[in-house]
């Protein structure tokens, strides 16, 4: 029913199969036929899995939930790019109209030391939760808040904070980075809170703690290649990394940990 005119595709998929985190994995080839250009990439996987189940084989495990680009759960490394060829979209929002009949598509999980594979295309990203636990919050208990309009915030600051806060925690930035660095993810949270008066109070400790935790989780160093920004589905900007570096530098000079 799409306005673009539906077409049918036949494709060859090379999909990473790995039984569990300890097993060795390999690419497995599958042919899929009659894939509508109106389908999403994950719906194409639904079709493949239905076929595998009907043939008595094991379907391919992959993470997904909202299927509208916001939960950050889907995570496929498609033809060498996290979330595939289209800019600014997650795997679940990638539609088959981005591919041509006869294409061969290689699908792998996120690759990073800090994101071990659980099975097939699903990886463990709990390191991100631990980074947030180390400082990605404002220490305010429920019930302690003043009236919301008490502190005025310039619209531009609020907008910048929102843009940083739009990160969905998918990990594509890490998967895109040759060093497996999580700088874009961490800097997005650091920036959001540093830009708002509510977050400023703890800004110094926050950046040091979060960067410390990031290192501890085994993420690599940032060498400014910019691959993360290019692959981020939510357009999180490198400016956040620059801001975080400034915050980090000034904090490490002045902050005394208690």
């Amino acid at each position: 029913m799409s306005g673009s005119g539906e077409k049918m595709l036949n494709l060859t998929l090379k999909v990473w199969r790995q039984k569990n985190s300890n097993a060795k994995g390999n690419l497995e080839t599958h042919n899929v036929t009659g894939i509508s250009t109106d389908m999403s990439f994950l719906e194409m996987f639904d079709v493949l899995n239905e076929k595998l189940i009907n043939e008595g084989k094991e379907p391919i495990a992959f993470d997904h939930d909202c299927r509208e680009g916001i939960c950050g759960m889907c995570s496929m490394y498609i033809n060498g790019q996290p979330h595939g060829p289209k800019q600014g979209v997650t795997t679940c929002q990638l539609h088959m109209r981005s591919f041509k009949d006869g294409d061969t598509i290689t699908v792998e999980p996120w690759r990073s030391v800090a994101f071990p594979v659980i099975k097939d295309l699903a990886v463990d990203r709990s390191a991100f939760d631990r980074i947030i636990s180390s400082g990605g919050f404002v220490s305010v208990n429920t019930g302690n808040a003043k009236d919301a309009n008490n502190i005025l915030i310039p619209k531009d600051d609020a907008d910048d904070a929102f843009n940083a806060a739009a990160c969905i925690g998918c990990g594509a930035c890490v998967a895109a980075c040759k060093n497996g660095s999580a700088m874009l993810f961490v800097s997005a949270k650091v920036s959001q809170l540093a830009l708002l008066p509510q977050g400023k109070v703890e800004a110094k400790g926050r950046v040091l703690n979060m960067v410390g935790q990031m290192d501890e989780e085994g993420f690599g160093n940032c060498t400014n290649t910019g691959a993360c920004e290019a692959e981020c589905p939510k357009g999180i900007s490198l400016e956040n990394i620059a801001r975080m570096n400034r915050e980090y530098l000034s904090s490490s000079l002045t902050y005394v940990k208690k």
Partner: peptide, 22 residues
């Protein structure tokens, strides 16, 4: 009303007007 207060205190970046209010 208290929900909005709480969320703003946590750093939830709600949309704002040019005057800085919500």
């Amino acid at each position: 009303g208290a929900i909005i207060d709480q969320c703003v205190a946590q750093g939830v970046p709600f949309a704002r007007e040019y005057g800085g209010t919500l």
